[in-house]
Nucleic acid binder design. Sequence first.
DNA 1: TGTTCATACGTAGGTAAGCTACACGTAGGA
DNA 2: TCCTACGTGTAGCTTACCTACGTATGAACA
Lengths: 111, 111
Amino acid sequence: MNPDALRGHMDALLLSVLEEKPLHGYAIIEALQERSGGALSVPTGTVYPALRKLERIGHLSSEWATVGGRKRRTYRLTDSGRKQLQGERSAWREFSTVIGSVLRAESAAVS
Amino acid sequence: MNPDALRGHMDALLLSVLEEKPLHGYAIIEALQERSGGALSVPTGTVYPALRKLERIGHLSSEWATVGGRKRRTYRLTDSGRKQLQGERSAWREFSTVIGSVLRAESAAVS
DNA sequence: TGTTCATACGTAGGTAAGCTACACGTAGGA
DNA sequence: TCCTACGTGTAGCTTACCTACGTATGAACA
């Protein structure tokens, strides 16, 4: 997977895995990997700054917890984040439709 | 359309509109706009450098022509470009499947 | 004891693709 | 004359993501 392709879709992915339940950063990375069937290996240097940005703009909230002697910062969606996720989803639908229509235009003309 | 979302997909779009027939830069921009139903307004500062890059790496060839007193540089796909387009198409399919599966994971669990 | 791995968070700095804003020029209509 | 459409092109900026690193705990194992 060309990493550049993820540009502009990272927020949607993060919000999406947090929709079901709150998760900490490391678990988010694992969830992305699992949901994508192993295709998405998002490095920590991408995820942690992105989560902080989403918190800063109000789409996520976080709290520290200690589990098994390890400290975790658990993120959860805010109401604003849920709205944002809806927007991201419709933006993705539009985006994939547009790109798909351009890429398939030729084969469509042939068929 | 968030411009960042196009990252990593520009080459695929350009190769795709050139698949049917050779076009010059300005016509490529119009073709993208038309095929996308008006959603894609790619600026010249994106298209011209990208076309030159694709020519430099051998996926396109170009020649100058004068039409109605105006000079145009017309680009056409090379064999290498056609192969690249196939690769870009399958990469797009994989990418959109992966992102789609992550974004729809929640609603899939619900249904 | 120490070494290694999984877990867990974080940042400084680099990369690169696309965009902004411009320059240059022709043709044609108001 | 001015404006718009047509047409190509570049210098420099932005910025989202990545690389490479630092820090730390716990568990397994030799």
